[in-house]
Amino acid sequence: MAEPLILHPVDRPGIATVMARKGVAPGTLNAALGLSLPDGPGAAFAGSRTAIATGPGTWLVLDDHAGADFAGRLAETLAGIAAVSDQSGSYLVHALSGPAARALLQRGLAIDLHPDAFGPGSAAISQIAHIGAVLWQVDDAPTYRIAVWRSYAESFRHWVEVTAVSLDEADQGG
């Protein structure tokens, strides 16, 4: 039987915010980034790279296989068309997957994760158990990725652990 719930930190991805310069259309950045940036709330994937729209003209760009100079290289690539800030030290990204992932997240997140409303490529910036979080769905397992401020990562993991136990007890009628 598949594990109902798997939580693990994503190993040191490169993370940066990308803000299009005034008057620069999002499509202008696509070629340099190697993916098609979402124009509204959502996530785009290409190889090891992910872009999450976090506001108008603003994205969080992550790369699972980037080195420590990810943001610097991105800034060079996007010089003149976007502002880039390194966020690798600010966020810790978790992958949460398994059949119980949705029910667990809904205990602390006021965003509708029903498959009709939120599927692979959907993203939201909100709070989980009062912790500010950027959340996006990767696949139908379902697998979610959740970025929280690094200093809140321990609180987030604690919340996942205690909520998983209470879900398990509820399933067993306890």
């Binding site: 509204g40 709330p41 506001g55 006021a110 939201a124 909100s126 709070q127």
Partner: peptide, 10 residues
Amino acid sequence: PFCGSRDSRE
């Protein structure tokens, strides 16, 4: 206008 309908606590 960007995120859609959200709880006022945000």
